[in-house]
Design a protein around this nucleic acid. Structure first.
Length: 283
DNA sequence: GGCCAGGCCATCG
DNA sequence: CGATGGCATGGC
């Protein structure tokens, strides 16, 4: 894979380790839109990228090249990760089917927290719908042709439980109001949290309303770039039976996978999740 | 129309 | 502790 940085764009010559459709549509991010057959728009916090692609080349147009270079995890060698995964687990190759070009996005922490609180016991198309409703509600502009930015904590702190209800959040409305308040307290400075160990950071995250062990793992992985976690949802829960016949709880399954894949757990999880979801779609 | 979704939380043993 | 039921809403 060849990557080049220019003034206002990043150009990726795809080999097998970068497929923009797979990256965006594998359920790790919800604030994006496919605006044409060969074009996506992505919103990360208050930054935007427009991505054009064909079979061989992906062009990421944006104002902040360094930000999106990191966002798309372009410093990480996915060829080596995939080799390591197959070394750990000799029959891992099947999990790459239809998702070989997936990468783990390094997303904005606040946006990731809000997004995955909304994701709980919810389906992907409705998660996207709710998040865009929240984004539009905060952005004033009624022009649907322009993507709204993701609101800041201060903007969201002005919304009430009723507002979130009207946007379709259901019983997550209370969680959102509470967590947005909690994130305003001094002891929840996101920058300071980045120095914590993964277990200590997870303990902090679980203290937020609407954040349990699974949502916390998603925030750790997609927001804080901690790859030594393995979020267990309904799909990866089912996938466990492909690895062991010993009955285990969800917590124990997460530990089983982290013991198996170590620092590559987060990557392994995303390939497995994508495989389970897409193969269920086919049947 | 019924089952399910990137689960969490309060409650109970 | 671990297990269980309730929960808003809409996609399919």
């Amino acid at each position: 894979m060849k990557v080049s940085k220019e003034n206002n764009k990043i150009v990726v010559q795809n080999e097998n380790d970068f497929n923009i459709s797979q990256i965006l549509e594998c359920g790790q991010v919800f604030s994006f839109q496919k605006v044409a057959q060969n074009c996506f728009c992505v919103v990360s916090a208050q930054k935007f990228a427009t991505i054009f692609f064909d079979q061989h080349t992906t062009t990421i147009e944006c104002d902040d090249v360094d930000y999106f270079f990191n966002y798309f995890d372009l410093n990480t060698n996915y060829k080596k990760i995939k080799q390591d995964l197959q070394h750990t687990c000799p029959n891992f190759a099947k999990f790459f089917l239809g998702g070989e070009g997936i990468r783990i996005l390094r997303q904005d922490v606040f946006q990731t927290i809000i997004s995955f609180i909304v994701s709980a016991n919810n389906n992907i198309s409705r998660i996207k719908k709710i998040l865009f409703a929240i984004m539009r509600k905060c952005s004033q502009q009624k022009d649907d042709s322009v993507l709204p930015p993701f609101p800041t904590r201060e903007q969201l702190s002005k919304l009430s439980k009723q507002d979130f209800d009207e946007l379709g959040c259901g019983y997550r409305s209370n969680y959102l109001v509470q967590t947005i308040k909690q994130l305003g307290q001094q002891d929840f400075d996101v920058e300071g949290l980045k120095t914590l160990s993964t277990p200590n950071l997870k303990a902090k995250l679980v203290s937020l309303a609407g954040v349990g062990p699974k949502v916390a793992d998603c925030i750790l992985l997609f927001g804080f770039g901690r790859t030594d976690v393995f979020p267990v949802d309904t799909w990866t829960n089912k996938a466990y039976s492909l690895f062991s016949s010993i009955p285990r709880s969800k917590t124990q399954i997460a530990k089983f996978f982290v013991d198996l894949f170590g620092a590559n757990s987060g990557y392994a999880q995303q390939y497995i999740y994508n495989y389970m979801l897409s193969s269920a779609q086919k049947i």
